[in-house]
Design a protein around this nucleic acid. Sequence first.
DNA 1: CAGGATCCATTGTGATACTG
DNA 2: CAGTATCACAATGGATCCTG
Lengths: 136, 136
Amino acid sequence: MPSPGSREVTATTPSDLALRRGDLFDVECPTRELLDRIGSKWVAMIITVLARPTTPELRFAELERAMPGISHRMLSQELKRLTLDGLVHRRVEDSVPVKVFYRLTPLGMSLHGPISVLREWAEANMGAIDARRRSA
Amino acid sequence: MPSPGSREVTATTPSDLALRRGDLFDVECPTRELLDRIGSKWVAMIITVLARPTTPELRFAELERAMPGISHRMLSQELKRLTLDGLVHRRVEDSVPVKVFYRLTPLGMSLHGPISVLREWAEANMGAIDARRRSA
DNA sequence: CAGGATCCATTGTGATACTG
DNA sequence: CAGTATCACAATGGATCCTG
């Protein structure tokens, strides 16, 4: 979050309203940043995996295995972000060695629907789009 | 089978199948890249603006004005990408100076629903998430 | 007007190594 | 096991200038 040193130009206070209600079209509204965060492939995958009824709770290594291609670092980073955002809950079992379990919070679960819709669109139309790209 | 939740990835050439059907969980499947592309704030905004019944077709400068905060370069880049992907149609009016109009293709329109769902989720939950982040 | 080209600062990301 | 730290490099994105 860089401090606005050079350009607090427009908007004297109208952003207050946008901030409160969430307005993608307001420059100052964090909804933009939020959308970029939840719209990523890694978030989509994490939410999708954790939303599977058979695996409501998974350990770090299990998630890693369930998401081929993700790097150690990325998974760690994304999980931390999602935890901070309150979409994922982190449970530590005090054994030796320690075990950590991740599961969706109610808020996280509520994101599952929207993300599924987008993911399914992507999976359904990927072929057509990819083909067009190649020919162009 | 000690790996619960894992998919049956036993095929010899799984990428072929995944490529054809679109599988986010396949490392080689372009669906991942596609999802990252369509999940961005700029794409969400472009699609949303062009989906407005009142403005089915907009010129470059009009789009720019409708999307406060986007840079010249970004808009140009994203429009080109969306055009290549077949989500946006580009119509050039041969006047002096030239006028260029953008509108959604049927494929682009079909993305409007999914994106709206995600955008609305973001706008609705932005407040809670933002508050939690600050306190953490 | 539309948008390409260039420069440059910032950030993202993988690989690797290390710790409790 | 579940991370964190560090490094090197790629990608992003804004600002600015340029052209048909």
